[in-house]
């Protein structure tokens, strides 16, 4: 077997392993969700942690980001910077939801300012 074909078959094995890991991760996400933790923060943290691991596997191995060229990393670095900035703005504005964008189900718009009155 030549070095080239040996290299390809090695990669194929990795792709299969990653695929199986992704399927296991999916089952694990659903299983953990059925546990019903008392804290919503724990539930969210677990679900997002598993999703991040799965995302890393797809990006790292299927999209070959584990061994990509420098220019691709530069593009993604800039993307990560702006993405983080956008998420910072989201956290910054979390209690400043625009009027009329939320519906309680009664058909009337809900404003976060009413939240404290509801308690």
């Amino acid at each position: 077997m030549s070095d080239h074909s040996h290299e390809i078959s090695k990669h194929v094995r990795i792709y299969f392993i990653v695929g199986i890991a992704l399927l296991i991760g999916t089952v694990l996400t659903v299983a953990m969700n059925s546990v019903h933790f008392d804290s919503m923060a724990v539930t969210i943290a677990i679900a997002l942690f598993i999703a991040c691991v799965k995302g890393f596997l797809v990006a790292g191995y299927f999209m070959h980001l584990m061994s990509e060229k420098k220019m691709i990393y530069s593009i993604l670095g800039a993307t990560a910077f702006f993405f983080a900035g956008m998420m910072y703005l989201t956290i910054f504005a979390r209690d400043d939801t625009p009027l009329g964008t939320l519906h309680t189900g009664s058909g009337e718009a809900f404003h976060p300012a009413e939240k404290s009155a509801a308690h």
Partner: peptide, 14 residues
């Protein structure tokens, strides 16, 4: 980001 804003701003139980 819109999802997060809408979710955290939603009225309790809504």
């Amino acid at each position: 980001s819109s999802y997060i804003i809408l979710r955290v701003g939603a009225a309790p139980g809504s």
